[in-house]
């Protein structure tokens, strides 16, 4: 690396640090500030994942318990992967501008992200229930559990590590993809800095880099935080399964 280039990189690092340490950026009342953008980011992501869970988990539990729609469960995750998240976000925004049912800022992004999160949540939940040891389920039936009790007291707790692992993957993916929303809407949380920085060319590079660092940190923290939530939510007996499930299912879809 030449001296000039080296100097440029050092300059960029310095500018980025200055950008990040500017107290104004950490002002909780500023709409362009980091705290606000972080909250906005999480607001979009959490809304999308909650919506996806409400829609997918009960359906998947029901279908898996009844051993229905096996082919759907295995193909839905592949189909989901094939849909480009960027295209989907733009499409949802486009549809929102045309129908006028919802605003063009918050909901199109949340709904697009929900659609992206549905396949991994659905498939993981479905697979989780199907993988519960058949002998355990049979034993429960043999002792007189009703079908609803089998699902609620046996299948759900035993499947929960894999279900939560699936939701975790989807959540991290949603947090990552939320940033892409910044291209299209005023939402997009921390993605805003990156997109705006890119738009300003070389002058915007410190902003791009700072935004990227914040974004990467937020995603990794979201992943770690979900890991803690998993541990709190899981029943004692299956907690060890969680790590295994996590490693095995890591790959959902990248954002």
């Amino acid at each position: 690396m030449g001296a000039a280039e080296d100097g440029a990189v050092r300059q960029l690092a310095g500018d980025t640090l200055t950008w990040l340490t500017d107290p104004g950026r950490w002002d909780v009342t500023s709409v362009a500030g980091i705290p606000f953008r972080t909250l906005q980011h999480l607001g979009v992501s959490v809304s999308a994942i909650l919506l996806a869970c409400v829609l997918a988990v009960p359906l998947a539990l029901h279908l898996a318990h009844r051993r229905r729609a096996e082919a759907l469960a295995s193909s839905v995750v592949n189909i989901g992967r094939a849909i480009p998240s960027f295209g989907l976000i733009v499409l949802f925004w486009l549809l929102a501008t045309r129908t006028g049912w919802v605003g063009t800022q918050f909901w199109p992004l949340v709904l697009a992200l929900t659609a992206l999160a549905l396949p991994p949540v659905f498939t993981n939940t479905y697979t989780a229930v199907r993988e519960v040891d058949a002998a355990t389920v049979e034993a429960a039936r043999g002792m007189g559990y009703t079908e609803a009790q089998v699902l609620r007291r046996i299948e759900l707790p035993l499947a929960s590590p894999v279900i939560l692992a699936g939701i975790r993957i989807a959540f991290v993916q949603v947090v990552a993809t939320t940033a892409i929303g910044a291209i299209v809407t005023n939402g997009g949380g921390l993605g805003r800095y990156v997109v705006d920085g890119f738009a300003r060319g070389v002058a915007g590079r410190p902003t791009v880099l700072a935004g990227a660092l914040l974004l990467a940190t937020l995603t990794l923290l979201a992943d770690g935080a979900f890991g803690l939530v998993e541990r709190l939510l899981l029943p004692d007996g299956v907690r060890d399964d969680a790590r295994r499930a996590d490693v095995a299912n890591r790959v959902g879809a990248a954002g």
């Binding site: 990552a176 993605g191 990156v194 920085g197 791009v208 990227a212 974004l215 992943d223 890591r250």
Partner: peptide, 12 residues
């Protein structure tokens, strides 16, 4: 690597 958002990775 997989977890880092694509947007952030381009920028980094």
């Amino acid at each position: 690597l997989y977890t880092i958002p694509s947007l952030a990775l381009f920028a980094l």
